[in-house]
Design a protein around this nucleic acid. Structure first.
Lengths: 162, 162
DNA sequence: CCGGGAGAGTTGACGTATCAACTCTAAGGC
DNA sequence: GCCTTAGAGTTGATACGTCAACTCTCCCGG
């Protein structure tokens, strides 16, 4: 560093356009989720991750790892979603503290419907907008960026969402 | 819609990887900004936008338009940044309410240094990681996505940041 | 047995983002 | 002149995200 010449105007504009595209796409999808399913992106991520666990209870630490979220973030989100009736925390040991986390019946319903709707939205707003060449280039860049920025996680399971 | 077949596993993984890459990159850059300049991404965006106005005062509505932020978001952010001493609101008319917004001396200092540092980080973490082909494909997709999702704004000035 | 540290989870404080409700001013209609 | 409306900004409520501090339990060395 320290040779940090600032960006050329053209580079800056590239960066700005790219960020703007991401933001617009993300916003559109989040609005769809909110409008069609009445859940937020954060709720969606958690619902999907638990859904993929197929009924098995997960630990907070597992959720945190799988979503790449701070544990505290998971805990706060669980608290909010417990209030909404989507998830429940259960005790592990006799008087132990460690909690397992699972979907309620309502959580399962919401997850199923949201996955269907949101999947369709991703198709419409993102996948369908890509030429095959764009898709393969963007896929390659994404994989390379993840590998560079996330040294751990050799292959591990996909996260829940976003 | 309603023929919303859900995503194929491969599509889902593509989507997931792409979102993850964005999140990691964004996080990295935001950490850099926080660590090196002690300002957040939101603060950076506002500082840059006002910086580009080159001393001229801006209205809340202009900031909102230029950043593509909700007016209320701008107002809240200004309140926080006024507390930090980066910006000041000034009165327009005699007893009128309409406020103009400008940088303080400290705000100008922060903006200048942040632009330099953040520009370098964008280079290192993003621009330098792209092959020319990737750059041109991603640029094309971004422009097309913005045009599709942001019908208004024919050409208008770039926003401040992110 | 006991004291101390490591892991797992929670909590609180604060900054950030969105939505709806509110205030104030200026403009028009009557 | 008064009332209504529209535009501009602010405020409050609530959800989201991060960091640091805290609690509990387990476990290990002594």
């Amino acid at each position: 560093m320290t040779e940090t010449r600032s960006l050329e105007p053209e580079e800056w504009e590239f960066w700005d356009t790219w960020m703007r595209a991401q933001r617009l796409l993300t916003r559109e999808l989040e609005r769809g989720l909110q409008h069609d399913c009445d859940i937020s992106k954060a709720e969606f991520s958690l619902l999907v991750t638990l859904w993929q666990a197929a009924g098995r209870e997960m630990r907070v630490g597992e959720l945190s790892e799988s979503l790449d979220w701070d544990k505290s973030r998971v805990s706060h989100q669980l608290t909010r979603m417990e209030k909404r009736g989507f998830v429940k925390r259960t005790q592990y040991g006799a008087d132990g503290r460690r909690a397992g986390v699972g979907l309620t019946a309502e959580g399962r319903r919401a997850a199923q419907s949201a996955i269907r709707v949101h999947g369709g939205n991703i198709h419409r707003h993102f996948l369908d907008s890509l030429t095959p060449e764009q898709a393969s280039v963007i896929r390659a860049w994404s994989e390379q960026a993840v590998a560079r920025l996330e040294p751990h996680r050799s292959e591990a399971a996909g996260d829940g969402a976003s």
